[in-house]
Design a protein around this nucleic acid. Structure first.
Length: 107
DNA sequence: TAGTCACAGCGTCACTTATG
DNA sequence: CATAAGTGACGCTGTGACTA
């Protein structure tokens, strides 16, 4: 495919990111040139296919990015689960110790 | 070693949501 | 409201682990 530079920024601040710092992702590799072949009949068809290819390419990138973010988000949640489980364990221990102390006092 | 299964990653389509 | 960006769902492909 012959496509050249005309880049679009993907500067969206989406959510999912209640979790972690974001890594800036790669910019789009290619774009579409203004292929101005002067013959009008063909031109609109060419334009259409070019438009479509550009759309597919952008969507491909978007899908990749989307999956990347989702994966990162899941990893982040898993980390959080681990941390909370640890905290929970610690608190249970603490509670047990306090109960013990109390029991001895009462006796 | 060939066949099978589960899994991950990808591209595309269709739909939703954000933005100018 | 038109267009761009984001995302869920589907089908396809490659890969590693397992089994007969």
């Amino acid at each position: 495919m012959a496509v050249t530079g005309d880049e679009t920024e993907t500067g969206s601040a989406s959510d999912l990111t209640a979790c972690q710092q974001h890594i800036p992702s790669s910019s789009l590799p290619q774009g579409v040139a203004g292929a101005t072949s002067a013959h009008g009949s063909k031109k609109s068809a060419e334009d259409a296919t070019q438009k479509r290819e550009l759309r597919l390419m952008k969507n491909r990138e978007a899908a990749r990015e989307c999956r990347r973010k989702k994966k990162e988000y899941v990893k982040c949640l898993e980390n959080r689960v681990a941390v909370l489980e640890n905290q929970n364990k610690t608190l249970i221990e603490e509670l047990r110790a306090l109960k013990d102390i109390y029991r001895h006092k009462v006796e």
